[in-house]
Design a protein around this nucleic acid. Structure first.
Lengths: 240, 240
DNA sequence: GCAACTTTGTTCCTGCGTTCACAAGCGGCT
DNA sequence: AGCCGCTTGTGAACGCAGGAACAAAGTTGC
């Protein structure tokens, strides 16, 4: 699960072009974006709300409402111009500029993220790596040398890091978070199982793998607890 | 972001003990659980809703309502017995039994998950690893040899895997998913940026790192787009 | 050029989830 | 033993998000 730590709202900054965008809509827009780019690669130039909604796994009415937040860029009777739509969504999501990412905690997960190609491809270049382990400092991971966590404020400020990713053990998370904030980082993605305390102007998103598994466990328990006879799987593979 | 793929509901299975638990509440319960176990380790035997809510980062009223779903195990005027509460939450989440986990796709992320100690510690032992790469098959990762994806149905059925974790590239995700379902897996955690098609009785949760970053990017854009003077950070570090 | 069909954009409405607020209940103190 | 204060549990209100339905708009075919 990912919890938007505090249930804050996407209040419209005064009278800016677009009105307040619901948090859930922002997440879906990112999904539409991926579907759209994928379709464009396949040469699709136009899509109806029905098609796009199907591919993204949402209701078509919801999709149209989401798209109305970015503006009215569809053509009635035809659909949406995929290229134009991508352009406008990217603008709304602030993806026109690149966001420099710093990864803190080069353990298993940190390693994976540092090497993960999906980030730079989507406009999120990883420009800094940090760890406390002196043996790791200086070692290049994914082509980038690891710096010591003590240098976080200075390095983040210098390289204009906008997003910090925390992959440290739980006890170190708050400390690291404070360092990132001191370095001017205002957006944090937290993989540590801790609720971080941050100033109001800092946005934290938490990804908690254990919680995800526990939620799945809950559904599993619910299902087997029901009156389903023990050895009778419902319908084998009825994938659409 | 993590999207519960289809907005299904936690309908109460007829007249079972606990009523329908809202999806969001299930996620929070998992968080309470972690906070509680951590507090127990520190010797705390009793907590008020206010304390626990603060540690979990939620409203105390929300917390009390969440706990009311598991039953009334608090003492008025005192608070909750931490040990008893943990016990009951674990029961509700189905954590009394162990859930065998299979990881598919031993790339960077899969590697990290296979080595991640947090899973077995919390009752989610990783019992199977899969990949298409012939060179990887047989190689032990985190003490467990990798099997070929073709053997997913057989191996999952044999080892009674209840949760499948998909860390493959996007194009392979649906295929792998079908194999897992064929192997009797009914709970899937999907890291691939794809909306999976599954039978009704299969629960899918998606964790999309790129989407998480894009949501953060959105907030960043909103903030800097506002009328904040360029070089004026609000209040440096006013962490509570 | 007109009409009919298609698809968007929006309005309304329903329903869930969160919060507030209060009554019930339990322990400690005198 | 009785009272007081604290904390739980829940009933009610509020607010947001999602879904259905409709009107506006534009295109295509004739």
């Amino acid at each position: 699960m990912t919890v938007h730590q505090h249930g804050r709202y996407t209040t419209s900054v005064d009278d800016l072009p677009s009105r307040a965008v619901p948090e859930a809509a922002v997440g879906r827009l990112a999904v539409y974006l991926r579907v759209l780019t994928s379709m464009i690669e396949q040469g699709v130039t136009t899509m109806s709300s029905e098609e796009l909604a199907g591919a993204a796994g949402v209701n078509s009415a919801t999709l149209r409402k989401d798209l109305s937040y970015v503006g009215s860029y569809g053509t009635r009777g035809v659909g949406y111009d995929t290229a134009k739509l991508v352009e406008h969504i990217e603008q709304l999501l602030g993806l026109t500029r690149h966001h420099s990412v710093a990864v803190v905690g080069i353990g298993n997960l940190g390693h994976a993220l540092a090497n993960y190609g999906g980030f730079p491809d989507r406009g999120f270049p990883v420009t800094a790596l940090f760890d406390v382990d002196e043996d790791l400092v200086g070692v290049p991971v994914g082509g980038l040398p690891v710096d010591h966590v003590d240098t976080i404020p200075a390095v983040c400020a210098e390289r204009e890091v906008t997003i910090g990713v925390i992959c440290t053990p739980a006890p170190a998370a708050q400390w690291v978070c404070d360092l990132l904030v001191a370095g001017g980082v205002r957006c944090i993605l937290n993989f540590a199982p801790v609720v971080l305390q941050v100033p109001n102007d800092v946005e934290v998103r938490r990804v908690d793998l254990a919680v995800e598994l526990q939620i799945l466990s809950f559904y599993q328990a619910r299902r087997s607890q029901g009156r389903q006879p023990v050895g009778a799987p419902a319908d084998p593979i009825a994938v659409v």
